Simulated assay, not measured.
Amino acid sequence: MAEPILKWAGGKRQLLDELYARFPSAFGRYHEPFVGGGAVFFDLEPARATVNDANPRLVNFYEQVRDRPDELIARLTSLDDPQSDPDPDLPHAEETARDREVDSYYYQQRARFNRRPYEGEFDPLEEAALLLYLNRTCYNGLYRENADGGFNVPIGRYADPDWVRRDRIRRASDLLADAEIRNADFAYVLDVAEPGDLVYFDPPYEPMSATANFNEYSASGFDREDQRRLLDVAGELDEAGVWVVLSNSGVMYDAYAEAGFRVDREDATRAINSDADGRDAVDEIVATNVPPAERREAGQRELPDF
Score class of each variant (00 low, 15 high):
residue 2 A to K: 05
residue 9 A to S: 12
residue 11 G to R: 11
residue 12 K to V: 03
residue 13 R to W: 09
residue 15 L to S: 15
residue 16 L to I: 08
residue 18 E to T: 11
residue 19 L to I: 00
residue 19 L to A: 00
residue 20 Y to D: 12
residue 21 A to W: 09
residue 31 H to M: 02
residue 32 E to G: 03
residue 38 G to K: 14
residue 38 G to R: 13
residue 38 G to L: 08
residue 39 A to W: 00
residue 39 A to N: 13
residue 43 D to F: 06
residue 43 D to K: 05
residue 43 D to P: 09
residue 44 L to W: 14
residue 45 E to T: 10
residue 46 P to I: 08
residue 46 P to N: 07
residue 48 R to A: 06
residue 48 R to L: 14
residue 48 R to V: 10
residue 54 A to I: 11
residue 57 R to S: 01
residue 57 R to W: 08
residue 57 R to V: 09
residue 58 L to C: 10
residue 59 V to I: 12
residue 59 V to L: 13
residue 63 E to V: 11
residue 64 Q to M: 14
residue 66 R to P: 04
residue 69 P to H: 11
residue 70 D to L: 10
residue 70 D to V: 11
residue 75 R to H: 12
residue 77 T to N: 11
residue 81 D to F: 01
residue 82 P to F: 09
residue 83 Q to M: 12
residue 87 D to W: 04
residue 88 P to E: 04
residue 90 L to D: 02
residue 91 P to A: 02
residue 91 P to H: 04
residue 92 H to C: 00
residue 94 E to M: 05
residue 97 A to R: 09
residue 106 Y to R: 04
residue 107 Y to E: 01
residue 118 Y to R: 15
residue 118 Y to P: 13
residue 118 Y to V: 11
residue 121 E to G: 14
residue 124 P to D: 13
residue 125 L to C: 10
residue 129 A to P: 04
residue 134 L to W: 01
residue 134 L to D: 04
residue 135 N to G: 02
residue 138 C to M: 12
residue 140 N to Y: 00
residue 144 R to G: 13
residue 145 E to P: 04
residue 149 G to S: 06
residue 152 N to K: 03
residue 157 R to L: 09
residue 158 Y to T: 01
residue 159 A to R: 12
residue 159 A to G: 05
residue 160 D to R: 14
residue 163 W to D: 01
residue 165 R to Q: 09
residue 167 D to Q: 08
residue 167 D to H: 01
residue 168 R to N: 11
residue 171 R to C: 09
residue 172 A to Y: 13
residue 175 L to V: 07
residue 176 L to G: 00
residue 185 D to W: 11
residue 185 D to R: 15
residue 185 D to S: 15
residue 187 A to E: 15
residue 188 Y to K: 13
residue 196 G to N: 09
residue 201 F to M: 04
residue 202 D to T: 06
residue 204 P to Y: 02
residue 205 Y to L: 09
residue 208 M to R: 13
residue 208 M to I: 11
residue 214 F to G: 07
residue 214 F to V: 04
residue 216 E to P: 05
residue 217 Y to H: 15
residue 225 E to R: 10
residue 227 Q to I: 05
residue 230 L to H: 05
residue 230 L to C: 13
residue 234 A to K: 11
residue 235 G to P: 04
residue 237 L to C: 12
residue 238 D to G: 04
residue 255 A to S: 15
residue 255 A to N: 14
residue 257 A to H: 04
residue 259 A to P: 04
residue 261 F to Y: 15
residue 263 V to T: 06
residue 265 R to E: 06
residue 267 D to N: 07
residue 269 T to Q: 10
residue 271 A to S: 08
residue 279 R to N: 00
residue 285 I to W: 07
residue 285 I to L: 10
residue 288 T to R: 12
residue 290 V to S: 14
residue 293 A to W: 06
residue 294 E to A: 10
residue 295 R to D: 05
residue 295 R to N: 07
residue 300 Q to D: 08
residue 301 R to Q: 15
residue 303 L to F: 15
residue 306 F to D: 15
